[in-house]
């Protein structure tokens, strides 16, 4: 399965990655070579194989419904938001969200 320049461009938009015009061909060819390697998998028949998403053959252990909160919520917020690129009145600021 080879990948086209357009598919790379579409995928990049989905992933919010900007590729410059002068790098898109290079990126396309590198990714194409990765996908060629990956395509070795297609040689084997896996139709009867159940996909495995985790090696731990276990069920999830659930948490009981308990609130776990800091005593000083405003101080905790300050600590958590200390690295925010832009904030005001306890809110993260971003360029205007248009719905």
């Amino acid at each position: 399965m080879s990948i086209s320049r357009e598919e790379i461009a579409t995928t990049a938009r989905l992933a919010r990655i900007r590729l410059r015009d002068d790098e898109i061909d290079d990126v396309t060819s590198r990714i194409a070579s990765i996908l060629d390697m990956v395509d070795q998998m297609q040689a084997i028949d896996t139709s009867a194989v159940e996909p495995m998403s985790n090696s731990l053959d276990a069920a999830q252990v659930l948490r009981s419904d308990k609130v776990d909160e800091p005593g000083d919520k405003i101080a905790a917020r300050e600590a958590l938001m200390a690295g925010a690129p832009a904030q005001q009145d306890g809110l993260f600021l971003v360029p205007k969200v248009i719905e």
Binding site: R63, D65, K66, V67, D68, E69, K73, I74, A76, R77, L80, M81, D89, G90, L91, F92
Partner: peptide
């Protein structure tokens, strides 16, 4: 529920912004 689906933060309504976000 008292706490969120994937964290121990409270789900109570009306707290100051981002004080129930761990």
């Amino acid at each position: 529920t008292k706490s969120k689906i994937f964290s121990g933060s409270s789900t109570a309504f009306g707290a100051p912004p981002n004080t129930q976000a761990n």
